[in-house]
Design a protein around this nucleic acid. Structure first.
Lengths: 106, 106
DNA sequence: GCGAAGTGCAACCAAATGGTTGCAAGTTGT
DNA sequence: ACAACTTGCAACCATTTGGTTGCACTTCGC
């Protein structure tokens, strides 16, 4: 809840699409333009652009104009935050499991 | 791409909703029934059930019938997988950043 | 046995999502 | 100057999503 998990939901939602996830991994290698990313992809450049905007809205990506092209790059900070969220939940859960086990064991 | 990131997308998509994320954290404390989870929530039990089904479809949750009620519990394995995916991408990225820095430095 | 509690199923609805196409406008190299 | 390339914007479309309501069915407690 709170603001924390709202933004977390936004990040996860942005990652929750196969095309977008593919974009993230591609951008993990190097910054690229929308047309470059659309090359070899099943979908249109416009679709790619929309996906990049979603990723940017979630703070996972930033863009920078360079002449006539626009380069998109990954923003690792948000990825780390998302990972930390998962760590927090699963740690709680792991402890809960442990407690349950302790109660049952004899 | 591949099967790996398809299922990853499914997991992230399941987590990409504020209500669902809240359910995950609640289930992180202890297994609970849909009606218990719906108590104090803004939305209907039916909506909660649908969300739980989505989470279960992504393998994040499992359910078990106990008398007249149905208890939902977290499945930590998938959370770990999702975290590992984020680790992998951000590690690539961190290395890429490093390489770029090395090329620019003098 | 009967009412209350908990669940499951189905129909339905508005809004968001992922995608397309067409076209105008700003760069670039020759 | 001009053709080629890259981007941006808008309209439009089908499907998915998140949510509701109503009702039938099982299970518990007394």
């Amino acid at each position: 809840m709170s603001k924390r998990s709202e933004s977390a939901a936004e990040v996860f939602s942005a990652l929750g699409d196969a095309t977008r996830l593919s974009l993230v991994t591609k951008l993990g290698a190097r910054p690229q333009s929308a047309t470059a990313l659309a090359d070899g992809s099943k979908v249109t450049r416009q679709a790619i652009v929309k996906h990049l905007q979603v990723l940017e809205g979630a703070g996972l990506v930033k863009h920078e104009k360079s002449g006539r092209e626009v380069l998109y790059a990954l923003e690792a900070k948000r990825l780390h935050e998302a990972r930390d969220f998962l760590d927090a939940v699963s740690e709680h859960w792991d402890r809960a499991i442990e407690r349950l086990r302790d109660m049952v064991e004899d």
